[in-house]
Design a protein around this nucleic acid. Sequence first.
RNA 1: GCCUCUUUAGCUCAGUUGGUUAGAGCGUCGGACUGUUAAUCCGCAGGUCCUUGGUUCGAGCCCAAGAAGGGGCGCCA
Length: 477
Amino acid sequence: MQRTKIVDVINSQPTNEAVTVMGWVKTFRSNRFIAINDGSCMDNLQAVVDFEKWDAVLLKKIAPGAAIAVTGSLAASQGQGQAVELIVDQLEIFGESDPSSYPLQPKKHSLEFLRQIAHLRFRTNTFSAVFRIRHYMAFAIHQFFHERGFYYIHTPVITASDAEGAGEMFQVTTLNLNSIPRTEEGNIDFKKDFFGRAANLTVSGQLEAELAAMAFSQVYTFGPTFRAENSNTPRHLAEFWMIEPEVAFADATDNMNLAESMLKYVIQYVMEHCKSELEFLNQREQDEDKQKPAQERNEMGLLDRLRFVLSNDFERLTYTEAIEILKQSNPNKKGKFQYPIEQWGADLQSEHERYLVEKHFKKPVILSNYPKEIKAFYMRQNDDGKTVAAMDILFPGIGEIVGGSQREERLERLQKRMEELHIPQEEMYWYLDTRRFGACPHAGFGLGFERLILFITGMTNIRDVIPFPRFPGNAEF
RNA sequence: GCCUCUUUAGCUCAGUUGGUUAGAGCGUCGGACUGUUAAUCCGCAGGUCCUUGGUUCGAGCCCAAGAAGGGGCGCCA
């Protein structure tokens, strides 16, 4: 079918040549003006029908949500809201949309309501903007790595390794759950299962990415990740997308530099390519803020926040320095923290991270060199014997957006740590082999894609930045 | 998983100390108007007050249990 996309029509000069546009009706005003959107941009095309020349029964079918095609000449608009409009000569209704049962009315809807009709919410301005930005962000990430000579590695979605230690896993099985085969001891007989052993959905592609990095030097993964945690927050999903670069011949500082430049690259890219989407979301947030008490409003608007992050270095400090700041902080002294900071070694709670990012530094913060007790087995042990070369990047309003580390490349140290944490080494022989054959300093991190979308779009619930969110008790659509 | 708030028309919400027939805006439907910008104006319709049980002469309102949704916390990206 031959059609011109609205994004191409809306910015062209009035040619008075015939064009055909296909899309979905947003509104039909005054029985004359059809606002049509085809998802190619924020803007609607205004199509003008002379209602006296058209059958009233046909015009009645131009209702919000209907799919239509209009053909006509492109003219300079007489109205104020748009430069050009299409004067309709031909009109075709592909699919009607009954106004009394179509849930999207030309009015403001709550995000909670739209979440329940996620199959239709793509058609709203807000979600149209969010998911177009999501696309550009994914594209920007690939471009960032490609430009720097990274290779995109597809790590497995199904894994038999349960030693990754990143959280509860979803089991993958073809066994008949109504009659599970048992061993003589009465345990489940996974030998009869599809893979001949217990299998799960991946919680991270990192370990496999490390294997690839030991050949290609620089690799990254970008794929779905699954966590069976019973997490009920606006920042967690059971199925989310994660970007995990892994770099050979790199240390903790290289790791931070890579993460910071990548985040800035993506923000910069979206600001360049999604101007109207960001302007819309910026305005939307401003309107929302007007309804809120002054205390809950954003100190800076969305666009200002993005510009601010681009033009400032992330604050880098060690865990130990952070503990000192928190110890001396007013909320700690006045007992305002639910979990008071008393001594070195405590895990930071989100109230502490929020204080550092939102109150103390007021910008993204990179925390490094955490106590080894609160971090994963594969992180490189520092010379002090107490800390590991971990780093977390914390963003205002969202918290942890990146978690990474320089990896422990020294075989003996790694094995000792695995022993201490009761991680089965036989199963992980392939991971340990990289430390046996040509081990080198290397580092990497995991970036939560949806959390970055939250920051860039100003949305506040992670369920609104993935098309079909998966979370405890919900796998609808 | 823990804490907390919410649930009233299609949507967003109001509903007084427990008292007759539960309201508004927007939307739908009908009509008017016709260069509008979530068009405007007039009118009609639309309710399992989340569910179940209880207290009471009487419950949208009080009590208990449950369900769904939001927010906070934990786990983390």
